[in-house]
Amino acid sequence: MNSTRRSYEANVLVVPLGADAVRTQEAFAGRGLDGVMTVHGVTEPAPAGHAAARLACAPLHRDGWRPPATGLGVDALVDGADMVVLLAADLAEVSPALCHAVADAARARGALIAALIVGSENWDTPRGNTAMAALREATDMLVVVRGVALAASFLDVLRGGAREPAAAP
């Protein structure tokens, strides 16, 4: 999104929670959001615990803060992230167990955990209520926005925001 950044950049990992969240993050890539990693293959954690889950990680658009990887457990997935963003669009698709598994692993590594809800379908369903409660419990910050443009800008700010090059005196 911005090519003028010259300061600290946070390592942001986006974890889409459901098919609608995957489509939402694809729209982020269409807006040119770079420097953010995303997760592929998100499913419910295995009954034996979150360590058994195997996921893939790749740049959201062109560039990321680490190389793509596959076969990662939740602990390895969040390793190196400064901030983990649980992305939701349809709250009925959100797995509370996965929210807690990812958040616990991120918190153990000192990462900030955020929930970013875009559009927020199914607020008023039992599954949506359960998902919202899990997101509130699992995260340090919960942000609800109406559309993709604002959500993409929010993620860009989280990773450091646009910076103009310093002008020579």
Rank of each mutant, 00 (worst) to 15 (best):
D104P: 02
D104S: 03
A106Q: 01
A106P: 00
A106I: 01
R107P: 07
R109Y: 00
G110R: 02
L112P: 07
L112G: 01
A114V: 08
A115E: 01
L116V: 04
L116M: 06
I117W: 01
V118E: 12
V118W: 07
V118L: 13
G119F: 12
S120G: 13
E121F: 08
N122W: 03
N122V: 05
D124W: 14
P126K: 12
P126I: 08
P126R: 14
R127V: 12
R127D: 15
R127Y: 14
G128A: 06
N129R: 07
T130H: 06
T130R: 08
M132T: 04
A133T: 05
A134S: 05
L135G: 00
R136A: 08
R136N: 11
E137T: 03
A138I: 01
A138E: 00
A138K: 02
T139A: 08
D140H: 15
M141D: 12
M141S: 13
L142A: 00
V143H: 09
V143E: 10
V143G: 02
V143K: 11
V143P: 02
V144P: 10
V144C: 13
V144R: 12
R146E: 15
R146I: 11
G147M: 15
G147E: 15
G147I: 14
V148R: 04
L150F: 05
L150G: 13
A151W: 08
A151G: 05
A151I: 09
A152W: 11
L155Q: 02
L155P: 01
L155W: 01
L155D: 02
D156H: 11
V157D: 14
V157N: 13
L158W: 05
L158E: 09
G160W: 01
G161C: 09
A162F: 10
A162Y: 10
A162G: 10
R163M: 12
R163P: 15
E164T: 10
E164D: 10
P165Y: 07
A166P: 02
A166W: 15
P169N: 07
